[in-house]
Design a protein around this nucleic acid. Structure first.
Length: 649
RNA sequence: GCUUCUGUAGCGCAGUUGGUAGCGCAAUUGAUUCGUAAUCAAUAGGUCAGGGGUUCGAAUCCCCUCAGAAGCUCCA
């Protein structure tokens, strides 16, 4: 007998050799029906797993991440099986479950068309109806390779060859289809009750653009039809918040074909929000001891040669002139700046610095130019010209932690102010020691700086994940990541430690012992990229900006033209207190004016008619709470001024 | 940059097997003086993204370019 501890803490005895499925059946037939996988001593396994010893057991349904994962992983095998039935020449690459679904990569000469996808979906339906059992088996390495060679799957052979020495090489079989797979899987294909193929895309083998491009099919799967319908409906809802759609509809920005990709035009509303953010950031930074700089937007090639951008970042730069002459020393070659660091360092380098001056904190509202690949651009999230709240700090080694903490504190302060603080995650971005040519500096320097950074992150108790190969070419980063409305993650804010550029530019300070020493440099943003922040705010608030950031805070709606003069008076009174107000003088009915102001997401409407005019009042209608009734204009003014001052969200 | 898809009036969309374009909203003009999400009517608006080709004839078929979407690679 073995003892199995269940999720609720109860312990039950079973015969040695009992399967997880049998345990589930012994608990209840209902549970056995909805169980998809199981967590055994913390490890997610198949329901067919045979229990050999005492263990803790947690049965996983579709409500758990592990259950979803198993179901979708099986769905990806169903997809691959369907593709193999219809296109036997397709070679299998990989097919994992991902957030919200799964994909499978195929090497096939003819890309899949939408008709192909329909056919594949139909075939998948058949496979689900066939309710094929998934059987797991393992093979020694040489037999595993032999099996995959026989089946003509070179990618699988490559994968097996790269498995570690002691790895268990497992396969899953369903009907005529067998795939190399670690699992876990659900017991049979029949449980994939609802699925849909969502898109086709190219994807490089092993994510390397030097490798062959494979055809990737994305899909999603659920245990119930209505769950999938809800998910798809939620996706449609998310699309309505997409800043790239909403931001254009609400006239925050636009683009023009003949200006170019990734070069958005900020319309008055978008420009206003960004101006508000910039003023807020610059004022707060001044309060925190930063000194503002304004440096050139371009420089000669020689600057970038010193900084390393010329050799490590050229693809990302707009270099002017004839590419054939870029390396000709007799030519004067200019390039637009992709970063401000080499420019702002010149402020520090202007004269010899004393330890008494450190730390020095410089900030700049900094427009940058990066030649992103054409397929990368997305609304205001990825663009070729953008403005960041950039700053560089120079400090002594013993000041590094405090300064770093100050940068993180400022970033969090900013995120809180705009209401994005709970939507972010932290990423410790490190170099990739297997790809040294991407970086400047030596292995020792990298290990030393990264070690220091890790200590600081741990001291500050920042809950970070680590990412290899995500560092800047000159140093490791703490990236504050945020997801857009479609769940795609981007960096919003970054704090970086750099010892290498300081060396390249010969930055030093004279310490109290009279020795010249190398300062640490922190590169940081405080709110990150303004365009990107605007995009995320549009999505977060579905276009309804908090009052302090709303481009238009109040719209005054006179009922008929005899109220126009009073409306203008109220408008002026608000404007005198710094409130952004406009009057809708159009000859329209009040319902129509309200409808438009609502659709344009103006936080407050003031309806002005005979009663209000007589009593020095305004009938207030809030975007959030609807009709608030008439109140004295002064009372409304103090209410909204307070809301702006406290930056209420 | 690569893969797949898309581009018709300011926006959202129709447009049959090739026979030179419509609808709704917005806009303009006129009427309406009105109390919390759309007043009525009329008018105007398009080298069908741009260029080339096939054809007697192209929004429609083919090629190139530009732009947009999703994904990959890269990155704030």
């Amino acid at each position: 007998m073995i003892k199995v501890t269940l999720k609720d803490g109860s312990v039950k005895g079973y015969q040695k050799g009992t399967t997880v499925m049998q345990v589930a059946e012994s608990i209840s037939a209902g549970l056995a029906r909805v169980a998809l996988a199981a967590e055994i001593d913390g490890e997610v396994r198949d329901l067919s797993t045979v229990l050999e010893k005492d263990c803790s057991l947690n049965l996983l349904t579709f409500d758990s991440a592990g259950g979803k994962h198993a179901l979708r992983h099986t769905a990806s095998h169903v997809l691959a099986q369907a593709v193999k039935r219809l296109y036997p020449e397709a070679r299998l690459a990989i097919g994992p479950a991902i957030e919200n679904g799964y994909y499978y990569d195929f090497d096939i000469d003819k890309p899949f068309t939408s008709e192909d996808i329909e056919k594949i979906e139909k075939e998948m339906e058949k496979i689900v109806k066939e309710d094929l059992k998934l059987e797991r088996f393992t093979l020694p390495r040489d037999e595993a390779i032999k099996l995959m060679e026989e089946k003509g799957e070179p990618y699988k052979v490559e994968l097996i060859n790269e498995l570690p020495e002691d790895a268990v090489i497992s396969f899953y079989r369903q009907g005529e289809f067998t795939d190399l797979c670690a699992g876990p899987h659900i017991p049979s294909t029949g449980k994939v009750k609802a699925f849909k193929l969502t898109q086709v895309a190219g994807a490089y083998w092993r994510g390397n653009e030097k490798n062959k491009m494979l055809q990737r099919i994305y899909g999603t799967a659920f245990t119930k039809r209505n769950e999938m319908d809800e998910y798809l409906a939620a996706l449609e809802e998310a699309k309505k918040r997409d800043h790239n759609k909403l931001g254009r509809e609400l006239e925050y920005f636009t683009t023009v074909d003949y200006i170019g990709q990734g070069l958005p035009i900020l319309m008055p509303k978008g420009a206003k929000v960004i101006q508000l953010l910039q003023r807020f950031v610059e004022d707060e930074e001044e309060r925190r001891g930063y000194m503002l700089t304004k440096t050139p937007f371009m420089a000669k090639r020689e600057l970038y040669k010193i900084s390393g951008h010329w050799d490590h970042y050229r693809d990302g730069m707009f270099v002017m002139g004839d590419p054939a002459k870029f390396e000709d020393p007799s030519e004067e070659i200019f390039a637009l700046r992709p970063m401000t660091c080499p420019f702002q360092f010149q402020v520090y380098l202007n004269r010899l610095r004393s330890y008494r001056e450190l730390p020095m904190r410089f900030n700049e509202t900094s427009t940058l130019f990066r030649n992103e690949s054409s397929g990368e651009m997305h609304g205001l999230i990825r663009v070729r010209q953008f403005t960041i709240s950039e700053g560089h700090l120079a400090c002594m080694p013993e000041q590094l932690e405090e300064e770093f903490a100050g940068c993180v504190d400022l970033a969090i302060f900013m995120l809180k102010a705009v209401g994005l603080d709970s939507d972010v995650s932290y990423r410790f971005s490190k170099w990739d020691p297997n790809n040294k040519e991407k970086y400047i500096g030596t292995e020792e320097q990298w290990e030393q700086v990264q070690g220091r950074m890790r200590e600081i992150l741990d001291d500050l108790k920042i809950p970070y994940t680590e990412a290899v190969g995500e560092a800047a070419f000159y140093g490791p980063k703490l990236d504050i990541q945020i997801k857009n409305v479609f769940g795609k993650e981007d960096t919003l804010i970054t704090v970086q430690i750099d010892f290498l550029l300081a060396e390249k530019f010969g930055m030093v300070y004279v310490d109290r012992d009279g020795q010249k020493k190398r300062p640490y440099v922190i590169h940081r943003t405080s709110i990150g990229c303004y365009e990107r922040t605007l995009a995320l705010l549009i999505e977060k608030y579905a276009g309804a900006m908090p009052t302090w950031l709303a481009p238009e805070q109040v719209r005054i709606l006179p009922i008929i033209d005899k109220h126009h003069d009073y409306a203008a008076e109220v408008c002026k009174k608000l404007a005198d207190s710094g409130i952004r107000a406009e009057v809708d003088y159009r000859n329209e009915k009040i319902g129509f004016k309200i409808r438009e102001a609502r659709m344009e997401k103006v936080p407050y409407m003031l309806v002005i008619g005979d009663k209000e005019m007589e009593n020095g009042q305004a009938a207030v209608r809030s975007r959030k709470d609807g009709d608030l009734g008439p109140m004295p204009v002064d009372a409304f003014l103090s209410r909204i001024v307070d809301e702006v001052k406290t930056r209420a969200l």
